[in-house]
Design a protein around this nucleic acid. Structure first.
Lengths: 210, 210
DNA sequence: ACAAAAGCTGACCAAAGTGTCAACTTACTG
DNA sequence: CAGTAAGTTGACACTTTGGTCAGCTTTTGT
């Protein structure tokens, strides 16, 4: 019986919770918190509504579980801004990683945007503080680069907002972005072109001209 | 009785429709289409629900009326990219005007964002085409500037998306932007600083170095 | 002054929503 | 393999929602 240790009941629970969260991400992203009906999540996850309530006791509980799940995967894409890199490389990597993340996690990205637009009602204080801390650390690195003459004196906070905005836009506002590019849908190569244009433009804008 | 000519019935209708639309903008922006309850719009506009239905026959009709109203005010802020200007001036004006518009029309801006994130379900084909046409015209101007050596060869479509993203972000994601700037709320001077950072960074990124 | 048009609204429905529950089946454990 | 814990679910209770309507009041043109 040795490695039966894989908690079989946990497996069922795990699988169903995953199904519910996956369906929830899609639907919350498209409809927002108030617009989402639990029955719709149940249908999309292939479970009866009552079964959804067996795992989650309310709509809010599903939603906050999703937000937590989403923030967990966030940090990874943002680790490139560190003082031991050269600015050009750091920003290039950051921009690519961020665009890559949003492209591969469309629904999560939109859900997060939706939550913010709707007033960040369910984003925990702790989570906001965590994001602020990361920003502060990045800002400090950029200030170091500026002091070292490796970067022009650009306001680091507005710079990061600009990067955040530019890299999120394609996923969040895909219909608009596609229209702007005269395409029916965005493809990987569009994200690549975006990364190139953003990186090259911004880098020329923040690096000392040689 | 002379100048009673100001169509008195029109006045009542006008006023109430305006109240409903104003309340609708706020609530649709915060809750999205599916999340908005007509009773809430009625309360916010100080009218009984049945009175709202006297002017609009459905939720969708209110919503699309708002979208139309919003797009009408859109074009104005985007008129600065024209071939008879120098790129630097044109982009500076464009960025300022766009930020200004979003700051002064927070709810509209968020409502539009909400509509796009939710899949642009109620944005009419005609309206999307109109926006595409404007973009095409701007792209042509930029291509002219590039051909004339007044700008570096930057992909104009991605450039406009970058500008769009950067200038919308502060209004749409105010809580995030405020956190990023370490402020409780955004003020006019933050929008000014944003305009400066965006304009100066982007301009260095797209103008030939002299 | 007065009829017609416009505006107003409480009360009402059918449909859809959230959340509950008791009874059933399946899975695991000793 | 019996007993218990976990999982499943149709049916139900209660609330909210979009939308209607008949009859009321106000405004307006003449």
């Amino acid at each position: 019986m040795a490695q039966q240790r894989n908690t079989p009941e946990e497996r069922i629970r795990e699988r169903n919770v995953r199904l519910i969260i996956k369906a929830g991400i899609e639907i919350f992203a498209r409809k927002g918190f108030d617009g989402t009906r639990i029955a719709e999540i149940a249908d999309a996850s292939g479970l009866p509504k009552a079964n959804v309530y067996y795992y989650f006791s309310s709509k809010e509980e599903i939603y906050t579980a999703i937000i937590a799940h989403l923030l967990a995967g966030w940090d990874d894409a943002l680790k490139y801004i560190s003082a031991d890199r050269e600015p050009a490389e750091a920003f290039r990597l950051y921009i690519r990683a961020k665009l890559d993340y949003t492209r591969k996690n469309l629904a999560e990205t939109r859900l997060f945007a939706s939550e913010i637009i709707q007033g960040a009602r369910f984003l925990k204080k702790k989570d906001r503080q965590h994001m602020r801390d990361i920003t502060d650390r990045h800002v400090a690195v950029v200030e170091g680069w500026i002091a070292a003459g490796k970067m022009l004196p650009v306001d680091p906070r507005h710079l990061f907002i600009m990067l955040w905005a530019a890299t999120q836009f394609y996923a969040e506002f895909e219909p608009l972005a596609a229209d702007g590019l005269k395409k029916a849908r965005l493809r990987t190569e569009d994200y690549d072109a975006a990364a190139t244009t953003i990186a090259e433009t911004i880098l020329r804008g923040i690096l000392p001209s040689r």
